[in-house]
Design a protein around this nucleic acid. Structure first.
Lengths: 123, 123, 123, 123
DNA sequence: GTGGTCTAGACCACA
DNA sequence: GTGGTCTAGACCACA
């Protein structure tokens, strides 16, 4: 479930949007699946429904969910978006690694950061 | 020595500045060492002295070299700059890796990019 | 309009950049306003377009203007820069006045310099 | 007498040198006058004689005092130095005030800083 | 139309 | 010798 971090300096709606965005893009929620209702989620997270509303607005603008009048919000088919983002990300990753190389960073340091987030397994 | 890539869409002066910038930041040239003279380098690279001049201007603005009147351009003490850039880079790297994780990228793909630039050795 | 001083030892491009920099920071040109075109200004000042180009490069690096491809150069929103510069300036001013006091300069002499640039009015 | 400020981040020897420098340049001590002995001053300020020694070294390098073997340190004829410094200072002051004008600072703000250090009298 | 890049070549100050 | 400035003019991409 979504967990809010009150030490995070970002606004709550952004946190909510980001968590669901990750969930959806990683396949944790499938196309067509219904999102928690604004009111219910507000109760669950003990925050204002307006905050959830705004988070859903963000997700809608990103094309990750779509509203159905009187029914709720549903997860969109995000395959295209996912592909586009991955593609963009690969370019960015490439630039970042190359930049590190140009700064003379050690390979080991790069690997350490990867391991920090992806675990030690297999290495 | 510096090699220009005429298929690169970036301007020549930027290429020259970038190559020397990397060289200096990676310690390939030491503080106080004299840069090739504007005119000589222009001859060596078969480009116009103005283009070299502009590249050196960039490097000077970045604090990587400094001019001495009537003497030439010299490599600055770039230790501070290097530290600052590495620090900034580490933050950027962290963000980039985390972003990849959120997109659901595979650890193996990240490692592949690292290997592409840093070689296979030891892994 | 911009007036060049050929008795000034500073290069022309620096004079051009400085005049526009002051104009922009003092609010004489508003954010979004279009700068004179490189070519037109070159004609108006009877100097080479390359010299204007270089002045605009300086202004861009300072963040005071930004180029739009095929459209021209435009005045940036300089509020942040202005605040930062004023802040830095206040520290510098404080140091300078204190230094004068330590050298035993007369208050009247300090005031005279201020009046020289800001006029007599009210004092 | 000299008072040390332990909240000041500058080294003690620099504070000692600076205070005496100001005293001498403002005419608080005359040419030929004997400086307090290193040991005596160390006792008075409750600091290490080496610190005083270093402060006197600074003053000697600036040409403000001179040592006489077996006799002590004496205040130099600082008229030339004073003139040179005042001259340099006037240029600096001029630049500083002009810079403020170019930033669009208010005359009143400049005057306020002057008053802060030189008092309100006469204004 | 706009700016950006580059060449060719002159002239200057500094050492 | 060195870099720094400036002119004159070409060519490119973008709109």
């Amino acid at each position: 479930m979504i967990v809010l971090d009150y030490h995070d300096r970002r606004p709550l709606y952004e946190q909510v949007a980001e968590r669901f965005g990750v969930l959806i893009l990683q396949g944790g929620m499938s196309a067509g699946e219904r999102m928690p209702s604004v009111r219910q989620l507000a109760v669950d997270l003990s925050i204002n429904p307006n905050t959830i509303q705004r988070a859903y607005m963000e997700l809608e603008q990103e094309g990750l969910i779509y509203p159905v009048k009187g029914k709720g919000n549903f997860v969109a088919d995000v395959e295209k978006i996912r592909k586009k983002r991955l593609e963009d990300y690969r370019k960015e990753l490439d630039l970042t690694v190359r930049k590190g190389m140009n700064l003379g960073i050690k390979k080991e340091e790069l690997l350490a950061v990867v391991r920090q987030y992806f675990g030690e397994d297999g290495l």
